[in-house]
């Protein structure tokens, strides 16, 4: 038997299980017969050979969707009838019952492994068989549990060994064929990263944003005139209403109104300078100073206008 170290986790389980004696199974009639025979033999030979007995061997291949794709039940020394082919996503499940061949009591062996040996390369992969107190052993080979790239033809062997029974057991189950790796993506990735090519990479060309389409110059120029044309409408309408330069005479002659008007013009000029050269902080600084003048002159001008209006209204009131 190969020397295999029991993993820590498994060892812990074994240590916990050690003090408890295996529970007794209800003896079956056929086994009772052999038991009596064995007892008879025991009386003659004090040092009888004790070894493992395996029963209820069940082998199954289950697809990733949970559907059973194949499997069979075996009698202990028997092998698998056919060579099962296993897909990468499939789960291989092996269960059996471990007993002491002599006493027919359930045994929980200290070491229990399922060994997969690659027939081509000879590489071995060891899976731990989980054995309960009742002697029920179970091994599952699935994409989650397999930590190696298993692919190709494999021979399955079960190895059992414990202190209470001097003879270990090696049971050749048969062989399976694993058709693809358990982790296809991982293996594909490693294949590509393995081949690193040193050399010039394709040149990266920067494509700048295409400039917006500028409308035709004649159209824009024509529409400058069209957009300005309502000024003619405005002038025409106001002249038709009798707002001629002559009627504006008294307003123009008033200093306060002129001052108000000039501060407004100055404000608009400031905005024009803001558009062309000034930044917003300079503009706001100038605007703060200018707005005081605009407020004062505006108040003067509008109160003058109001006074004139009230005087006129009074005049009209007297006339009426």
């Amino acid at each position: 038997m190969k020397l295999i170290h029991t993993p820590l986790k498994q060892a812990k389980v074994e240590r916990r299980a050690l003090p408890t004696s295996p529970p007794t199974m209800a003896p079956q009639p056929s086994i009772l017969l052999t038991l009596t025979l064995l007892l008879a033999l025991l009386t003659t030979a004090v040092l009888a050979k004790s070894s493992f007995a395996i029963s209820d061997v069940k082998f199954a291949v289950v697809g990733s969707d949970g559907v059973r794709r194949g499997g069979e039940s075996l009698e202990f020394p028997g092998k698998l009838a056919s060579k099962y082919s296993v897909q990468g996503s499939d789960t291989v499940r092996l269960t059996f019952q471990v007993k002491d061949a002599e006493t027919d009591k359930s045994v929980q062996p200290h070491q229990a492994f399922l060994i997969l040996t690659n027939d081509e390369t000879g590489v071995q992969s060891v899976q731990i068989l989980q054995v309960r107190d009742s002697g029920k052993a179970r091994a599952e080979l699935s994409p989650k549990t397999a930590d190696e790239n298993l692919v190709g033809p494999y021979t399955l062997e079960v190895v059992l060994g414990t202190f209470s029974l001097p003879d270990p057991l090696k049971y050749a189950l048969g062989s399976i064929n694993i058709e693809s790796t358990f982790d296809l993506s991982k293996s594909a990735e490693s294949a590509t990263t393995a081949a690193v090519i040193y050399g010039p990479r394709p040149e990266i060309r920067h494509i700048f944003r295409q400039p917006d389409k500028v409308p035709a110059a004649w159209l824009s120029n024509a529409f400058v005139l069209v957009v300005l044309s309502p000024w003619l409408v405005l002038l025409g309408a106001w002249l038709a209403l009798g707002i001629t330069p002559a009627i504006l005479g008294p307003f123009v002659s008033s200093i306060s109104i002129l001052a108000f008007f000039s501060t407004l013009v100055a404000t608009e000029f400031l905005f024009y300078k803001y558009w062309t050269s000034l930044n917003i902080f300079e503009t706001l600084t100038y605007f703060a100073g200018l707005s005081v003048f605009t407020f004062v002159t505006g108040q003067r001008a509008l109160s003058e206008v109001q006074a004139r209006r009230l005087k006129n209204e009074g005049k009209y009131a007297k006339k009426e």
Binding site: D212, K213, L219, V227, S229, W231, A237, L241, I243
Partner: peptide, 28 residues
């Protein structure tokens, strides 16, 4: 009020012509 109305018509026409230009020449 007529003076203001004239001004309103002028502004309205200015806006309409700008919008027509936007439709014809795009919003570049």
């Amino acid at each position: 009020l007529k003076i203001i109305d004239g001004y309103l018509i002028y502004i309205l026409l200015s806006g309409i012509t700008q919008f027509v230009y936007m439709v014809l020449a795009g919003t570049y």
